[in-house]
């Protein structure tokens, strides 16, 4: 009895947390479809009928995909380097986490200084004569992806690092001693073993970039908003909560449409990779 009680008490905080989260989620969806006790899907119909919203959704997913891709491209080698670093790894970890000490607004503004029309990059290009008028490096998708990669990269690095640290260096050496070239060793040993970390990182970064608000607002173009920014504006500027809720639900569903298959992909891949390497 006492044990059951203790377990119940220990479970209580997480139950409260999950409960509140679920209530919020249910109320969010409800507020987008329930009007005067009637189910009414007109907000969803409106969204589907507006080409600019469809384009915005597509842009959001594309930006998130690109951000995730570049985070992975930059994050994996960094995580590998840190995992195999012989010296004081904590210093490197500190460098990776350091940007988190600075507000996301400040970090995004930092890019304005660098990428803006009179920013560092353009200033240098024009000073050297490599460009005669400022390149459009921000207020477009490029700027948003750049900003998001910067903001979200630590998540990817840490997700992959935590898995790489568990993989003994001996396994790579074993592969090499058996004639496995570095790329072969990577593909058949390191990659399959670090896949859980990669998929965790991808899921995290993808989800966070689909819902990004600040970075697209500061670095994105005026006309090409992302869905997170749009929701923000519906709430803060137009006070249209039902519409914002509908947009949020659409965002949730589309994000799940990518993340859930990713989870299945992880299981399928790890099963395939564990059952036998290609011969």
């Amino acid at each position: 009895m006492a044990r059951t009680l203790r377990s119940a008490l220990l479970l209580a905080p997480s139950a409260v947390l999950i409960g509140i989260f679920l209530i919020g989620l249910v109320r969010l969806i409800a507020s987008s479809v329930l009007f005067d006790g009637q189910i009414d899907l007109h907000h969803y119909v409106d969204i589907m009928n507006r080409p600019d919203y469809i384009a915005m959704l597509g842009r959001t997913l594309r930006t998130a995909a690109l951000t995730t891709f570049f985070c992975l491209l930059l994050g994996y080698p960094t995580a590998y380097y840190v995992a195999r670093y012989q010296g004081n790894r904590n210093i490197l970890l500190l460098l990776i986490i350091f940007p988190w000490l600075v507000s996301i607004v400040v970090r995004s503004y930092g890019w304005v200084v660098i990428l803006g029309p009179r920013g560092l990059v353009n200033g240098f290009l024009m000073w050297t004569g490599m460009a005669d008028r400022p390149l459009k490096l921000m207020y477009n998708d490029f700027g948003v992806v750049m900003g998001l990669v910067h903001v979200l990269l630590p998540f990817m690095i840490i997700a992959i690092l935590s898995v790489l640290m568990q993989i003994s260096r001996n396994l790579e050496e074993a592969s090499m001693s058996l004639g496995g070239h570095p790329f072969y060793s990577f593909r058949t040993v390191l990659l399959p073993l670090s896949l859980p970390g990669i998929l965790t990182g991808v899921t995290l970064v993808y989800l966070m970039s689909t819902g990004a608000i600040v970075t697209p607002l500061l670095l994105g173009g005026l006309g090409d908003t992302m869905i997170g920014t749009e929701i923000f504006q519906e709430v803060m500027h137009f006070f249209d909560y039902p519409k914002a809720a509908a947009l949020a639900t659409v965002l949730l569903v589309t994000a799940m449409a990518v993340v859930l298959p990713l989870q299945f992909l992880e299981r399928w891949l790890s099963k395939r990779l564990t059952d036998g390497a290609p011969s």
């Binding site: 396994l171 074993a174 592969s175 058996l178 004639g179 496995g180 070239h181 072969y184 060793s185 058949t188 040993v189 399959p192 073993l193 790890s270 990779l273 564990t274 059952d275 036998g276 390497a277 290609p278 011969s279």
Partner: peptide, 16 residues
Amino acid sequence: FPHMNVFDNVAFGLRA
């Protein structure tokens, strides 16, 4: 290699 069975472990060098 923890992600491979006995056969694939032994076969690794030949495949590599």
